[in-house]
Nucleic acid binder design. Structure first.
Lengths: 206, 206, 206, 206
DNA sequence: AATGAATGAGACTTCATTCAT
DNA sequence: TATGAATGAAGTCTCATTCAT
């Protein structure tokens, strides 16, 4: 009957919070936001409906936190993949490897994030954050391409961003097996091809 | 005195049906499926709630018909853009011009269609149709690329499809002005660059 | 384009009225009053919904007329089966034969009437008429039994009325074949047994 | 602080369930199934509309449970009135006393059950159960009559079942006072009369 | 006489949220 | 911290009835 210590309480809180978020994410991804009930989230998390409201203000708040987490993941990714000007090609290759890896590790999560980022009501609520995120990503790509001395880096960055999102879309929603590895290789080859050949005897690459 | 003639009735039915479909589309696109009420659709269409059920079985049926219309539009597009083997480059250029035009003409509509095609509950309900549609589109692109004698047409078609969808995504959800014309030109240039140079002194294009 | 004669119009009116009533009866019997829509009645009758309202004030009115017809059928039956004091046994036998025949001829109809006569909302609306009908039937049976010089005709009439209604109930709702003929014979035998044996050596029968 | 104990919760659930069932029964009996709204049931039970759906799947489910309870009451009755072969007459007399008592105790309830068992949509949904119930009752009566060595027990059982249902019908729907006690006595007398007189010189009575 | 498109009240049902325990 | 019974606003859908033609 001794009162729990502050650390114990904190640990419990964190565990519950994480379970709830994970359950919400999985169900939102599987069934969509509106087709997921608080009852279902609670059941999946193994807690009561009431408890969710101890940690989150509302169902919308749950969604908001999930999205913020995703955007933060993006921030961290960008932070961790600053271009190394000494070896720009390796930099961008690693970024591509890592981002594909991220998606392959947790496709449900990214499926949800993509679906959510297309729902008008979500978009309008998080417009600022999503917009900022998009611009930052685009700039990051542009910076990388500049480091590679690619001509017209702005347009190429837009293409690359679109291409990546399109690939993700198709990967995520294809019913058959999507040849993600093959696509990744092809993507790298394409980017390498963009790099101008400096005083080299190598053949041009298409 | 006499009851309305068959033609009169048919005209009335068609007008109501169209108004309802248009209103549903607009509201689904603006607010999402679940955030659109039948009451709102009826108000927008200038009819009563009840009338919608004279023409559609349910809210879901309304959605289904919208999606079917979209898929049919896609079918017609493919049908009307068969490659002309005598002038394959012009063929593909025209297809690109036309599809961009289509989207620019009715961005709301295609925004809805894209958003819908990402919702798990929609996808699972229309999986077969959407899948078939996707495969057919991919094959159509592949056929065009083969006509251009592009190497590895399968992978290039996947890239092109992904690129196009990614561009649409960004165009549709960008808050700022999206340089669609510029992107379109760049896209064509890229495709032209894929064409192998036959017995020509022209420089290779990246 | 000559205007229809009054007789023609009257014939048309009567035909429509009858078709509508017959359709309503059949559907009410098959599916119940509340599970029958005006649309269904119109379809079954081969007329438009609107036309029903030319002849009947409302769905309730339709029901009312059906019930009134049934009660009137009962009146006619009683009228046509007055006891013949010269041959009372034959009188009652004929009444039994005829009423069983009536039910066998149109079981749906009587099923509806029985079901309706048990619905509280119907009963309360037609309470007076149904009550009057019941009392009149009971009195009719009592009169017959008196003609047969049955002891305690009041109680025997109550039994006979209950027995008849119970038999109808079981006949109408039995899924298997109900041995109606056998039951009818047994019923007659029972009634004959009630008749006191005059100037006879036979033992009295209870 | 602590959540409610299991017992507390169970008690609350049971109380609510019972209140809802009782209210539904009363209103169904008074106004009929279709003329009773969930709103009315909730008001009568003193709970919110929503709560009903915590305990019952639908309005139909509510009805189903009421009917199942009634059929179960019948089962229990049969179970508790097995014939005592040493004293068959007393057995059947007690059964008659008890079943009349049951109905007199709760006429509304049995009125509903009878009305429900005549509605086509109900009958068709519960046909199997109701049929089984009817056959079992008939067999029970037959068994009792056999114990009494009544001739033709099959037909007599059918008569008795019909007679009882008919009496209930008239009792339940009579507006005036129905002489239930008198009818009960008469019924017993009739049954006694069916018993053959053993070791007697008297003739058998039909 | 006849049609059927149109209406809208009102039914059933769902579910995010609250709160007593 | 944790529970789940309870609420009620709001949604989808039905259908008797009206009315212009």
């Amino acid at each position: 009957m001794a009162p729990k210590s502050k650390e114990q309480v904190e640990k419990i809180r964190q565990k519950s919070t994480e379970q709830i978020l994970a359950s919400a994410l999985e169900l939102f991804a599987r069934n969509g936001f509106h087709n997921t009930t608080m009852r279902a989230i609670a059941a999946q998390a193994g807690v009561s409906k009431g408890l969710i409201y101890n940690y989150f203000d509302s169902k919308d708040d749950l969604l908001q936190q999930i999205i913020e987490n995703a955007l933060e993941t993006g921030d961290v990714f960008v932070e961790n993949h600053q271009v190394d000007y000494a070896r720009p090609v390796e930099s961008i290759d690693k970024a591509i490897d890592d981002i594909f890896h991220l998606v392959e590790q947790n496709p449900d999560y990214w499926k949800l994030i993509m679906a959510l980022s297309m729902k008008e009501d979500i978009v309008s609520r998080f417009r600022n954050q999503i917009e900022k995120h998009g611009v930052r990503n685009l700039n990051h790509i542009k910076t990388m391409l500049k480091a590679l001395q690619v001509p017209d880096p702005r347009m190429e960055a837009m293409f690359l961003a679109a291409l990546f999102d399109g690939i993700m879309l198709h990967y995520i929603y294809s019913t058959d097996e999507y040849p993600l590895e093959e696509v990744k290789s092809h993507l790298k080859k394409r980017i390498h091809a963009l790099v101008p050949i400096k005083s080299s005897k190598k053949d041009p690459v298409v």
